[in-house]
């Protein structure tokens, strides 16, 4: 019997209204469209896609840092999207987020000790003695940094502090929003190594948001591919052969660090449609080499094999 999932996302949708004003009609942007996903305890699920695909909005919806237009998110038995403010605040102990920009995610006026004490202050819990040193040690930082301020740290060190802060209240679930996107590859590898180690030691569950399919394939158990707000494919494991033409294009766009594997790339043609005016059919049809008339008029639903669903009329 499989245990119940830790996170259940059901038909999550978020629209943004913008631009309403004098002589202007408000426009609706479909940021996240009907996303459903379950994450088992201990699993690392990757969400990959290009800028504007809605992956960061999804991250915020899952932690209810943004309110969904419709749909539900459940953490264990509690329905996050229905919790009243006080209960939601209490539930925040169980989940946390690591942000992309390690430079702006720490208050410049706070010392590291203050940054790491903040979760306790916010949750009105006493800070155990020695906790700051222990938190710093857990992410590989020396205790002597406790009195430093963020501007005295390197990007990699700051991101370690961001991870330590996320872990302060011993959550079960972490959303990692491009935690290495603004770091050098050498530092990225350190951080990924640390995250993998923490997961093993603390039994954490991750939702890992990234634009880098190579990185996601290295780090994640299951991979959700998003395009313009919607899930187009869920790869059941890192080495699964991609079935959606967009996933295939993403993989083909990456270059292996091996001159022996040089290749000509058939670049995608066409521009990405505006999220304010999605076409009636498949959002990828305009750039897809396999598109037919049906793709331009009907929207394919995510379906097929339950273990490896794909939203395409002509999958590979």
């Amino acid at each position: 019997m499989t245990p119940p999932p830790l996170i259940r996302i059901e038909a999550l949708t978020r629209r943004f209204e913008t631009g309403g004003g004098f002589l202007k009609r408000p426009r609706t942007m479909m940021a996240v469209q009907d996303v459903s996903l379950s994450i088992a305890r201990g699993e690392v699920v990757g969400v990959v896609g290009e800028s504007g695909c809605g992956k960061s909005t999804l991250a915020r919806l899952v932690l209810r840092l943004l309110e969904p237009t419709s749909g539900r998110v459940l953490l264990g038995d509690s329905e996050l999207t229905a919790l009243p403010p006080a209960a939601l605040r209490a539930a925040r102990k169980r989940m946390a987020m690591v942000f992309q920009d390690p430079y702006s995610s720490l208050d410049p006026r706070y010392s590291l000790a203050e940054v790491l004490a903040e979760p306790f202050v916010v949750q009105r819990r006493a800070l155990p003695s020695g906790a700051v040193a222990a938190m710093l040690a857990a992410v590989g930082l020396p205790e002597t940094l406790a009195t430093s301020h963020p501007h005295q740290l390197s990007g990699g060190q700051r991101q370690r502090v961001g991870i330590a802060r996320a872990l302060a209240l011993e959550p079960e679930f972490l959303v990692l929003d491009e935690p290495t996107a603004s770091l050098d590859v050498s530092i990225q590898a350190q951080i990924i190594d640390l995250l993998a180690d923490l997961r093993d030691r603390l039994g954490l569950t991750y939702l890992f948001i990234s634009h880098d399919l190579g990185l996601v394939r290295y780090f994640c158990d299951r991979i959700v591919v998003m395009y313009l707000g919607a899930v187009v494919e869920v790869l059941p494991h890192a080495d699964a052969a991609p079935r959606h033409p967009y996933t295939r294009a993403l993989i083909d766009s990456g270059f292996a660090p091996d001159p022996a594997r040089r290749r000509t790339i058939a670049p995608l043609t066409g521009e990405i449609p505006s999220p304010f005016a999605l076409p009636p059919g498949c959002a990828f049809a305009g750039r897809c080499p396999r598109a037919t008339d049906r793709c331009r008029t009907d929207r394919p639903a995510l379906g097929g094999d339950a273990a490896h669903p794909v939203a395409c009329f002509h999958p590979h």
């Binding site: 006026r109 202050v121 961001g162």
Partner: peptide, 26 residues
């Protein structure tokens, strides 16, 4: 719009904390 405000929220910080511990001091 700074990320550290969102970070405080993600930890469960209320309005008073955000206003008096982050926004006004900065």
């Amino acid at each position: 719009s700074e990320t550290f405000i969102e970070a405080a929220r993600s930890l469960g910080a209320g309005n008073a904390h955000i206003l008096f511990r982050h926004l006004l001091p900065n």
